[in-house]
Amino acid sequence: MGWTETCAMTERMRFMTAVEQGDEAFAAVCRRFGVSRKTGYKWLERYQAEGVLGLIDRSRAPLSHPEAVPAAIAERCLAVRRAHPTWGPVKVRAWLERQDAEIAWPAASTIGELFDRAGLTVKRRVRRRGPPSSAPLAHCGAANDVWCVDFKGWFRTGDGSRCEPLTLSDAHSRYLLRCQALARNDTEHAWPVLDAAFREFGLPHWLRSDNGPPFASRGAGGLSRLSVMVIKAGVVPERILPGKPQQNGRLERLHLTLLQDTADPPASSLRQQLKRFKDFQRLYNEERPHQALGNDTQRGAGRCADRSHRGRGRQLECLLRTDRTRVHRS
């Protein structure tokens, strides 16, 4: 014979039925169901006031919590997240602290829970990652030591225009020096961007890129027209190993943020897309907190280098005085 299964709601309904029949004294009914008279009267009062719904267990949670986040504070956190969907709790908290340091803002973990409750987060798929093969960025000891350059990859705007973003950033400070849409990814279009950056910020020591055109070629030493022009300007080109984009990981990570904030989906026209790039560059450099910089911004990080560029190319003999291994060093 199996065990007789029951539940609290069933027992309470049986208790109320027995009380309403009036065949036994109230105390006797309580003893038969194994509850005290105080508990019996409590359920009887709820049943008479609310009916069957009164027999459901009520929440024991307190009506108020002294450590709860005020609604106004929570809404400000959510407003920043809605304005910047790619910012995590750490960046949101750092940005709020800079805007109003007198308020005791919640911890980053609490802000993350607010995002979860409001449905503003998407769970990431867990990926198995292998250890990096090298550490090519260890020599970036100061701003303007190494600049990173690359094309984001072309796409079409809503009106069918081709957009080829070129980004140029400082590897140490993460300062975004240039973010421009070019018509093509060749030397004629890329060099004016580099030349303007050299004139505005001075010359870095190295310029890191991948092995694709126009940064490299199959010629002697892998040099291209653009890399020769860079050398004549006084900068050493530095190329990552083929198939190792993680060696230029800081710029690749910037490209992910650029895609999420400006091109997902693309703008309706090329003019609108250019405006997005301009607004993104200002936001990235002046407002967006960066965890690698202690949740600070790069405001003022784009200082001028010690070496200036006047548009005059040096003789190619400088290449002979430069360690050729630097070009392919990892």
Rank of each mutant, 00 (worst) to 15 (best):
M1K: 08
G2K: 04
C7A: 01
A8F: 02
M9I: 12
E11R: 08
F15E: 01
V19F: 04
D23P: 00
E24M: 12
A25E: 14
A25D: 11
F26S: 06
A28M: 02
F33L: 08
T39E: 15
Y41P: 01
L44S: 14
E50T: 00
G51L: 08
G51M: 08
G54E: 02
L55C: 06
I56D: 12
D57N: 13
D57E: 14
R58C: 08
R58L: 13
L63G: 13
P66S: 12
A68Q: 12
P70Q: 10
A72N: 04
I73L: 14
L78D: 09
V80H: 05
R82T: 14
H84P: 00
H84Y: 05
V92Y: 09
A94R: 04
W95E: 07
E97F: 05
D100F: 10
A108K: 05
S109T: 13
I111M: 15
F115M: 14
T121A: 05
T121N: 10
R125V: 11
R125Y: 06
R129I: 14
R129N: 13
L137H: 11
A138N: 11
A142Q: 15
A143E: 08
N144W: 06
W147G: 04
D150A: 05
D150I: 09
K152W: 02
R156F: 11
R156S: 10
S161T: 06
R162P: 00
R162M: 07
C163F: 05
L166I: 05
A171M: 04
S173R: 05
L177T: 03
C179M: 09
C179T: 08
A181W: 06
L182C: 05
L182Y: 06
L182R: 03
D186P: 00
E188D: 13
E188S: 10
H189P: 02
H189S: 09
A190C: 05
A190I: 00
W191K: 00
P192L: 04
V193M: 11
F198W: 07
F198P: 03
F201L: 06
F201G: 02
G202T: 01
P204W: 00
H205Y: 02
W206K: 06
L207S: 03
D210Y: 07
G212V: 10
P213Y: 02
P214N: 12
F215H: 11
R218M: 07
R218P: 01
G219F: 05
A220G: 03
S224K: 02
L226D: 00
V228W: 08
V228R: 13
M229P: 02
A233R: 03
E238L: 07
P242N: 07
P245L: 07
Q247N: 07
R250F: 13
E252F: 03
L254I: 02
L254D: 04
T262W: 06
P266R: 08
A267K: 09
Q273W: 13
L274D: 15
K278S: 15
F280E: 12
L283H: 14
Y284S: 11
E286S: 10
P289V: 13
A292S: 15
L293F: 14
G294S: 09
N295I: 01
G302M: 07
R303P: 00
D306G: 12
R307P: 01
S308K: 05
G311I: 03
G313M: 00
L319S: 03
R321F: 12
T322M: 13
R326C: 12
H328D: 15
H328P: 01
